[in-house]
Design a protein around this nucleic acid. Structure first.
Lengths: 221, 221
DNA sequence: ACCTGAACACCGTTCAAGT
DNA sequence: ACCTGAACACCGTTCAAGT
């Protein structure tokens, strides 16, 4: 797609380099956005670029290296020009909700970042921004670090869990809890129909619980 | 191993059934406890029972069915005879910490339960107990459901994230944040050495933030 | 009735061979 | 210098054949 519209590569010229790190990351990012991380196979990336599946080993040491580079690219702009209102609580809330939407749009991305054993460059910039927000809001260094870690962990772990579930995952769950014998499961029979209705609402509810406590701990010091 | 020490199976007798659902689940559970969910392969389970790798298809429809049955077995007793002190906050806190320790002892178990699209029987019993605890503590049904969901989600998602990281995963992270250029990363240079020190402490910190807020919402109604 | 084992359609990755 | 393609060592799963 990129090479077809690139006027710098005349069609009749001697075969130019058809792939590069950037092109491979592009193809990988497209696949992740379309079908998730699990859909990425070397054979698919290769055929998408019209190239042998094994050609990419000239540019990346392994599939994991390609996936991490792709993950980092997908984080670019996810938070970069995020508007800072000055209200730390409101800003952090919007931050977390926005990151969640990015994770949900790229199934497997959150878990990819979780399991990386080295922080991605754009992840570092994100944490830098979060901690800056907390420190300038008057939090002590220790509180800023702890609060930042908890919010980051909560956001990425819960979103990673929710994006792994298929779209209709909530449907089979709803109702199964109310079908259990009432003698053994009185509470589930009473309130089971309210369980697991809306993952987004649940995420926001927990996020507000965390932010409320963080705010209160700052005030009570 | 079981058949070798089983006196009910004389060595010279006509070959008896050597496997069953229970034996397969046992072997699978042993593998999960020793090396995690990812180490489970049909060929390994087969060789562990001295049986052809494909023999298990007579007892389970697929690998996933075996894994889910194993997950449910690993939840048995994880919370069953848990002591109820009567202090809901203290009980829920111990509950979550205990479940986390079970997840961490079985790498991949949390994610296995997360991605199941039907609740496991022992999971239902767990949620029944949690909601009962909250309702008898005076929470409204809506608050009990929401609080229970958030605590369950937080515990399983964060533990699933932490158990996926290798043991020395924290080591490479610590320090990388303080090595970044101070001009661009002033906050990470200032407090980066305090980041990602202790996953258990971080989990407990966030758990207390949640419980504090839950307690306050009950009181202010 | 139960287990076996060859086979199939996938993986990620290596490496000698082509151009 | 760059790409190819056969090959290797794995997967989960199927199915005809053995006993």
């Amino acid at each position: 797609m990129a090479s077809a519209s690139d006027p710098a590569v005349p069609p009749g010229a001697a075969t130019p380099t058809r792939i590069s790190r950037d092109l491979l990351i592009d193809a990988c990012a497209r696949t992740v956005a379309a079908d998730g991380v699990d859909a990425v196979t070397m054979r698919r990336i290769g055929s998408e670029l019209g190239v042998d599946p094994t050609a990419f080993y000239r540019y990346f040491r392994s599939k994991e290296e390609l996936l991490l580079a792709t993950a980092d690219r997908l984080l670019v702009g996810a938070f970069d020009r995020f508007e800072i209102s000055g209200d730390w609580k409101r800003d952090l809330r919007a931050f977390c909700l926005h990151m969640r939407s990015v994770y949900l749009a790229h199934p497997g991305l959150a878990r990819l970042i979780e399991t990386a054993n080295v922080p991605l460059p754009n992840e570092a910039r994100m944490v830098e921004a979060w901690i800056g927000l907390l420190r300038s809001a008057g939090f002590s260094d220790a509180d800023a670090v702890a609060s930042c870690e908890v919010l980051e962990t909560y956001t990425i772990a819960v979103s990673g869990m929710d994006d792994a579930a298929p779209d209709d995952a909530s449907t089979p769950w709803v109702g199964t809890y109310t079908a259990l014998p009432p003698a053994e499961y009185p509470n589930l029979n009473a309130v089971g129909d309210q369980l697991y209705q809306d993952p987004d609402a649940r995420f926001a509810y927990g996020l507000d619980l965390l932010l409320d406590s963080i705010e209160r701990r700052r005030g009570s010091r």
